[in-house]
Amino acid sequence: MRVVAASAAAVDWCSWLGLFDDEAGLRVVAVPTQALRYANSLPPDFEARFPGFAKFRAEVLFGFEPDLVICDDYQNALTIEALRRAGTEVCTLEAIRGFEDLRTNLARLARALEASVASQRVAEAADRLEAERRALELQVAAGTESWTKWRVLPCYELGGHIASAGRGSSEALLLELAGVANVATDLGLVGHDKVRLERLLEVDVDCFLVSDEKDIEGLRRRPALAQVAAMREERFVVLDARLRQANSPFVLTAARALRAQLELLANPGTRDG
């Protein structure tokens, strides 16, 4: 079975399901070049082994003679239609706005891979997904550390503004799974949106979630933020952008990573030990 993973999220899913393995029972024949920048846990020789393509177009995809194309459901509907018309199966993935979307996507992938040997891996993955989630839930329920009460603001620069991710985004799910409060939700943000600094001062933040040092610099440059608790206490957690944007089951990995980072920030002593 020849598979094209046609979006960064699709590559993420394939990677999480272990479909890039030689023993997976199918062959991923092409990935979009942009996946290199946005997908998680890629095998080290990924770029050499999997040919990249730049355009999501039916002819380009046909060139790889795929049996199955996995892509996002908001990608060009005409292309999806053309692929289906020519008899290629297309599995479309929902954007991750809540945990339910992970289950939906997994179910769709299971259906698409039914005929292949890889269906075994998908079945295992479904169990893994639920198990990982339960483990996290147990940790969250048992958590008594001081940082579990922190209210975190995920933020990034967007055209000279600070933007954040509120209700209905995969980053909000990430914070929810990690068991910390999302300030963006308190601010009433839906999806990705600009943060109004005035409102931010009003609700206060205990900790900023950023992607790299540059983001921290950006926050420090804004004098208005000096009064925020997170700024006074110098509380920033850094999480790789790929994990933060994970539109895939890697959101669970990201949640674990975030918990570890917060733990480290709250008890710097453990760092030395």
Partner: peptide, 13 residues
């Protein structure tokens, strides 16, 4: 709809 990545991507496209 700027907050909705997918939607604003479709409109821009």
């Amino acid at each position: 709809v700027l907050r909705d990545w997918e939607l604003s991507a479709s409109i821009t496209a």
